[in-house]
């Protein structure tokens, strides 16, 4: 299970703290070497993403990845990030953006960043992606059952 929080802000640290504030959990937030937040010794998981003016935070009781991206259509990047089957299905900016957020949410779920290789992310056969549209953005959450 997870919950998404979306806010028009670039300050993810304050945003996260404001969510936890009500329950006095503020001071327990730690950040690892990649800036990824966690609560010391506690099994709750966060993931943060921003694009332009918006930040999204996903909170869950298990590993989770989230990505938000403004509507974009960078055809040039397709060969780098997608396989043939995926490329064939991209017809417009909506398809492109949805593909991007799926790929990103997965590598963030893994915690490996780009070094995993976006092309290696299978968006066709993997059904754990949850994509949703938010204004001119797409958000994707990746979580395994």
């Amino acid at each position: 299970m997870y919950k998404l929080f979306i806010k028009k802000t670039k300050d993810s640290k304050s945003f996260l703290e404001s969510i936890l504030n009500k329950y006095h959990i503020k001071n327990d937030i730690c950040y690892n070497e990649y800036g990824k937040p966690y609560i010391k010794g506690n099994p709750i998981y966060f993931n943060i993403s921003h694009s332009k003016e918006y930040t999204v935070i996903a909170i869950s009781d298990q590993e989770i990845g989230v990505d938000i991206e403004h509507l974009t259509y960078k055809k040039k990047l397709l060969n780098k990030i997608a396989n043939e089957e995926e490329i064939k299905a991209i017809k417009n900016e909506h398809d492109w953006t949805k593909l991007w957020v799926k790929k990103e949410s997965y590598v963030k779920y893994l915690g490996m960043g780009l070094s995993y290789g976006l092309k290696n992310v299978d968006t066709i056969n993997n059904h754990n992606f949850r994509v949703k549209k938010y204004k001119k953005y797409y958000i994707c959450v990746y979580k395994e059952k």
Binding site: Y2, K3, L20, K22, I39, N42, P43, I44, I59, D61
Partner: peptide, 21 residues
């Protein structure tokens, strides 16, 4: 004490971690 705070927070956003915590 911290787990209780945490549990209440997660419950407030619809996630039940009580059995685990």
């Amino acid at each position: 004490r911290n787990n209780i705070k945490l549990s209440n927070f997660m419950l407030s956003i619809g996630i039940d971690m009580r059995k685990k915590l």
